[in-house]
Nucleic acid binder design. Sequence first.
RNA 1: UCCUCCUUAGCUCAGUUGGUUAGAGCAUCUGACUGUUAAUCAGAGGGUCGUUGGUUCAAGUCCAACAGGGGGAGCCA
Length: 484
Amino acid sequence: MFNKRIKIKELLTQEPNGQEVIVMGWVRTFRNNQFIALNDGSTNNNLQVVVELGKFDDELLRRITTSASLKVTGIIEPSLGKGQKMDLKAATIEILGDSDAEKYPLQPKKHSLEFLREKAHLRFRTNTFGSVFRVRHALAFAVHKFFNDKGFLYMHTPIITASDAEGAGEMFKVTTLPVDGSATRDDAGKIDFKEDFFGRATNLTVSGQLEGELGATAFGDIYTFGPTFRAENSNTARHLAEFWMIEPEMAFYDLEDNANLAEEFIQYLIKYVIENNKEDLEFLAQRLAEEEKQLPQDKRSEMGLIEKLEFVLANSFERLTYTEAIDILKNSNQNKKKKFQYEVTGWGMDLQSEHERYLVEKHFKKPVILTNYPAAIKSFYMRLDDNCEPGKQTVSAMDILAPGIGEIVGGSQREERLDKLEARMKEMNIPSEEMWWYLDTRRFGTVPHAGFGLGFERMVQFVTGMTNIRDVIAFPRTPGSAEF
RNA sequence: UCCUCCUUAGCUCAGUUGGUUAGAGCAUCUGACUGUUAAUCAGAGGGUCGUUGGUUCAAGUCCAACAGGGGGAGCCA
């Protein structure tokens, strides 16, 4: 019977007054052959277990090593030492699992994040990753709470799909055909996917949006929250081959409604974590400040982590159109002095990440919602804006750019007019026959609707201040790397 | 995929213009001490210098390829 234990997080909120408790956890350090710092993952704060001299066998004490797991019973008393308010005076100590100190790779000292990435199966036992993953959990919970409270329906869209949602991005193939080249070929010498498990070529999803639209045009408001896969050979601190994305889709929403929801959503998530994970945020803020001490002054953040989050809560996001952004960039000193690696050539160009960073981090110094991009650089399903200047056709797209992260949200009002949508698909070589089911939403009771995708890991990065996306997902999948 | 930097003890790192037996702190082990806070003190063990090949009388040090990792870029969320 193990479940009579009290979690350390809860115990530490109590007043020490001689209560008898059972705790279980892992040893962080054993100081002075007398003080065990015990952690059970419920909080970064350890419980100090006091081992009275002569009360326990030396044999037992020798087995209390870093990361050994213990069951301890005893009495809670006010601590005689300075660092903590209570001690657990041990009556019994049971070693649940030994941890060979010569082989256990983590020590009670500072390890580099790169080193811990290679020990991803054990890094949860550190303070940094303890905080990161508790915050990640809180954010995931807050996502569901936000949408549930608003009456959105949580929709599970398929992970195996036959459609290439945005015509962009390499996809992972899903097949049961032999990979040694012996699969049946058709007359043209191509692999005959009629022989495959699903009777057609299938992939891992790159987005649940198209299926989400089917839900939205029946339920009104839906959201998805699931894994997404991109087989791009991207090697950066903000890309994963497997990541989690939240994609709300709303009927009877236009672009402005969409932007309002996205802004409210992001602020809600931040507020939830500030209110519910104060200790973890404080730890992460301190960690980030220490890390930034190593950087040259001009590369350090102007605000501390919590200060930054509170700033984002207190100020509305800057909204401007793509056209206005191009004007700002073109007239910036940075551009006039040719300090951009990619010159701002003018209307129609795609923004490079240095341009986005300039707008967010230098010009506005807060999150920015960029809208109404040129149609030529955006996806087929985005709604064409009416009354555009000749040669400057735009779509009702929006990207939300966050300081230090870049694009955190991408969304749009969807093209609900069948004729315009079909014309656009033809233009962009999207096979409309295969998408008959998608087009049916426009054939039968089409409505104005909109939605967006929020990269969950990027949101976790923004809130925790972790600079590498591989440190905010338990087991990162990146090109050449799928250990664990 | 491109550019760039890195790879020396379990970890973090030093190692001079190529030249005897490759060092430090922490960790580990042994002992001491015992109200400690990454405890402290003393001693000990621990290395095919990422891999392969080359240059040289001599390579941790120079050159090349490969592997792994960091930072930046592209693609994107």
